[in-house]
């Protein structure tokens, strides 16, 4: 068995709108290094909420997450930001590229945050853009790119600092069939060839088929852990 990369401990997140919604209700899961993990479940079951907790984008009400031996609960917001820039990568459903930066600058940004030199960052960003098949789109602004291309840039950006874990929330949810298949293939390739660890929310059957672990969420609880 490969080494554990992330573990949650009695994770809780509730929202309160007149009544209390337990979006994440006592979740205890473990992710192993080098695996592709998929979270499935009906809409509103808490998948996105869980993923943003794993990514340190939100704080749980109680419980903890341990990434590579580091507890989130022990970190200040500042330290959590440092952890995010070094160890985590994100791919969002709506791409979320910075609109006034070029594709290349978007990919370079996380590297600049960790103090990499402009030149080294540019070199690596170009390499990553090649990897996702966009070597001809370096100077394009996000709005000049198609949805599928934007998502590739986002994936390249997520990989910028060689993160321990890449989180993706319905990364193909906003794409047409052809682009969806290409992005799915890209994720598989990155996992198989580079051993990149992923956790993603997806409704894509082939992704689910490929996953090492499938978590099924219902009403905030992880009900099934399918070790494929």
């Amino acid at each position: 068995m490969s080494k554990e990369i992330l573990r949650t401990v009695n994770l809780f997140k509730a929202f309160h709108l007149g009544e209390t919604i337990y979006a994440v209700n006592d979740v205890n899961i473990t992710l192993k290094a080098g695996t592709l993990n998929v979270i499935v479940g009906p809409s509103g079951s808490g998948k996105s909420t869980l993923l943003s907790l794993l990514g340190g984008l939100d704080r749980p009400i109680s419980g903890d997450i341990i990434l590579d031996g580091q507890s989130y609960a022990a970190l200040s917001e500042d330290e959590l930001a440092m952890l995010r820039r070094r160890k985590l990568g994100y791919v969002f459903q709506f791409f979320n590229l910075i609109p006034h930066l070029t594709a290349l600058e978007n990919v370079m940004l996380p590297m600049q945050f960790i103090g990499m030199s402009h030149r080294a960052a540019k070199e690596r960003a170009t390499m990553l853009m090649e990897k996702v098949g966009l070597e001809k789109r370096l100077r394009h602004l996000p709005l000049q790119l198609s949805g599928g291309e934007q998502q590739r840039v986002a994936i390249a950006r997520a990989l910028a600092n060689q993160p321990a874990l890449v989180l993706a929330d319905e990364p193909t949810g906003n794409l047409d069939t052809q682009n969806r298949d290409e992005i799915v293939a890209l994720f598989k390739q990155l996992n198989e060839e580079d051993g990149q660890t992923f956790v993603m929310i997806t409704h894509d059957p082939s992704m689910r088929h490929h996953a090492h672990q499938v978590f099924e969420m219902i009403d905030g609880k992880v009900t099934a852990v399918d070790n494929g």
Binding site: L57, E77, A81, L88, Y90, N96, P99, P110
Partner: peptide, 15 residues
């Protein structure tokens, strides 16, 4: 807000 969210997600410090 959206831009700040992404910058923070990528690890830009709050301050």
């Amino acid at each position: 807000r959206g831009e700040f969210a992404v910058l923070k997600a990528l690890g830009l410090r709050p301050r």
